[in-house]
């Protein structure tokens, strides 16, 4: 495989840049922690679901939120690469479009997974200090959660890259991706349980792949879920595979 070095090159570039931009890392971790503490703590004083404190209920949702925002917005960098012509340098290299796409996914997923790992550590610390109750942190639950988030992240980075490959301006990307990410987040059950929703809302929630990621995560960490966790995982995997296929196609047909 002569493309392995090239794929590594693309990953290495993203990783280097990510490590150099520490303010980006701090901001991307600080904002979900604030969400968790302020929204979770605030609403938690009045809300709990079947004996589970809202803060703990929210934690899996916040993990998904981080994956969602960080992964999809990663696509904006491809728009920048177009603007500064770095993309030309990559596109004119012998690397196949599929390999370029894989390299980009690896780069984007690494960024996101690092953020998620830090959040999980925060979550663990919060549970040690009694801020988060009812959450089981064991090697198994953490491993399953990371598996869910990893697969979800790959699918979401693909969405970002698909969008990025079609857009010409970073501003346009920002608008379109917010338009996409917001409903995915709010309709995922990250903020509320989905077992008692008004019937007109149900189809939207069920069509949303993020719903199953949240359900799986919440089932694993808090023990509260609507669907079989194995079913959740299958649906998340199907989502990721479909997005990778669409992404590969859109990269093959990307124009400058």
């Amino acid at each position: 495989m002569s493309d392995l070095r090239g794929i590594y090159a693309l990953w290495y570039r993203e990783f280097k840049v990510f490590c150099r931009e520490q303010s980006r890392l701090v901001a991307s971790v600080a904002s979900p922690v604030l969400w968790l503490l302020i929204i979770g703590g605030g609403l938690g004083s009045v809300i709990s679901f079947s004996g589970i404190n809202f803060l703990s209920f929210l934690f899996p949702g916040i993990l998904l939120q981080t994956a969602l925002f960080s992964a999809v917005f990663f696509g904006v960098y491809i728009v920048w690469d177009k603007k500064i012509d770095f993309l030309k340098e990559v596109l004119v290299s012998p690397l196949s479009r599929t390999s370029i796409f894989i390299g980009k996914i690896l780069g984007g997923s690494t960024d996101t997974i690092i953020q998620i790992a830090i959040l999980l550590i925060f979550g663990y610390l919060f549970s040690v200090f009694g801020i988060l109750e009812n959450i089981t942190f064991s090697p198994v639950t953490v491993a399953i959660s990371i598996a869910f988030l990893l697969v979800m992240t790959v699918g979401l980075v693909s969405i970002g890259l698909i969008l990025g490959s079609q857009m010409a301006s970073p501003e346009g990307f920002q608008l379109v991706s917010s338009f996409l990410v917001t409903p995915l987040f709010f309709l995922s059950g990250a903020l509320f349980p989905i077992n008692n929703l008004p019937s007109w809302l149900v189809p939207f929630v069920l069509c949303n792949p993020a719903t199953y990621a949240v359900d799986g995560l919440r089932g694993t960490l808090v023990g509260m879920h609507q669907f079989d966790i194995r079913l959740d995982f299958c649906i998340v995997c199907i989502f990721a595979v479909v997005m990778i296929l669409v992404g590969t196609y859109s990269f093959k047909h990307m124009r400058l």
Partner: peptide, 15 residues
């Protein structure tokens, strides 16, 4: 990236 890293990246892209 640094100048060296840019060149290294190029070398990797060309295997």
């Amino acid at each position: 990236l640094t100048g060296y890293e840019n060149l290294n990246l190029h070398g990797l892209l060309y295997d």
